[in-house]
Design a protein around this nucleic acid. Structure first.
Lengths: 219, 219
DNA sequence: ACACAAAACTGACCATAGTCAGTTTTGGAG
DNA sequence: CTCCAAAACTGACTATGGTCAGTTTTGTGT
């Protein structure tokens, strides 16, 4: 290693430290204002001021306001997802496991004030930028984790062997997302109704639409 | 009917006529520019100029730019949906019927240049305004039509009697939407791959995840 | 034909997301 | 310590979505 100036920088990279500090301050300021005033009503100037940086600096850490929301939401979503999978009962049946995971995420959205969820979901599919990419990667990871749950259920004998776990995961996640959309669009007032809708959809996916062969379903 | 001024207005409501004309000119201008330059790159000033109206007038017909996109897309989406259901083979099995309907909609998005679909799907769940409401109502109507297909399949004996058609429709539409999202996010290059993904998901929904009772699935 | 109220229209104006030329800070070399 | 280049930072500036007070057009009663 080379010389280190005696002036400052006890740790390697005072520059790096500074950047991280600033990033955190920006994320914190953005979160507070988004939560208090809503996403649309919060101006980038206000976030910059609260974070104690210039307006231009803001756009060095997130290329646009949308990506700023992704920056803020990523951590919370990641934390909640990890927690949901960590508290999963390994013995529970697949539908209960899914209800637990998806229900945890619904709760996260329900906790947010003032339609932050609306803004986030509106952007999550199409936003560009480094933070949007991180969120996108996380979604893919969640899909894989759900596929793993399906695979485990297969090994237990609860799910047919020739089901492709990733296809099943896509169907299950699609249902979660669809119900979330409906809620954010203003339908389904309470989170309980939300969960019951999702549970019904998952139950149907498990059971299948087709009428069982050689066996009348009635009488 | 009352007196009619001899000056103009041969038909009842010159005012009404004029408004409709203007609405059509605005919709046409918006469509042309969105298609040529993309949604984001098109300015409301340019749309107003091309439509031959003042900038302020634009916002009498759509409360904001987002709703302008809804105005433009509603008609195309409605036309395509009606056509898809009209050309449906009543004899075909449910999965083929669904593939036909959803495939037709995928083609509509695939025809649009420059990510108009991206902008539309981004907004469709959360946009406000009269045109957004019309689109939203149309989505609900489509859900009902899919539920009808399920009900018909039930009557034919292809679908179990105790399946709730609206729950099934929600699952099926969710799969359609999820695949569309993935495509707009940049995955799945061709529309053929898109359709094959959806077909696989639908097939799994029909068959169900559960292992059939009393019958080992493997030799 | 005229007067008048209601509806429709308009573009100058405002607020804010995002840019960029110029400034400050950083960290190492001599 | 001094000097320098690169990185980081900044706020005046630009472009554009949306507003609104003032103007024009329309329909109707006399």
């Amino acid at each position: 290693m080379s010389k280190i100036s005696s002036k400052r920088a006890a740790e390697p990279g005072a520059r790096e430290r500074n950047k991280l500090d600033k990033r955190d301050r920006i994320a914190a300021a953005a979160w507070e204002l988004f939560a208090r005033d809503g996403f649309e009503a919060t101006t980038t100037a206000a976030v910059a001021e609260r974070a104690g940086v210039g307006k231009g600096t803001l756009f060095l850490y997130a290329p646009d306001k949308d990506d700023l929301l992704m920056l803020v939401m990523h951590d919370r979503l990641a934390e909640r997802t990890d927690r949901a999978f960590a508290t999963l009962s390994a013995r529970a049946a697949l539908p209960e496991q899914l209800s637990h995971v998806f229900g945890s995420l619904y709760e996260l959205y329900a906790e947010q004030p003032r339609g932050i969820g609306v803004a986030f979901v509106r952007l999550v599919s199409t936003a560009r930028g480094p933070n949007a990419d991180r969120v996108h990667a996380m979604t893919q990871a969640t899909l894989s984790r759900i596929a793993s749950l399906v695979r485990t259920a297969q090994e237990r004998g609860d799910v047919a062997d020739d089901v492709l776990p990733m296809v099943a995961a896509a169907n299950l996640f699609a249902a979660y997302f669809f119900v979330l959309f409906g809620w954010l669009s203003g339908l389904s007032p309470t989170i309980e109704i939300l969960r019951s809708h999702l549970d019904a959809m998952i139950a149907l996916q498990v059971r299948g639409l087709a009428k069982p062969h050689g066996k009348p379903s009635k009488g």
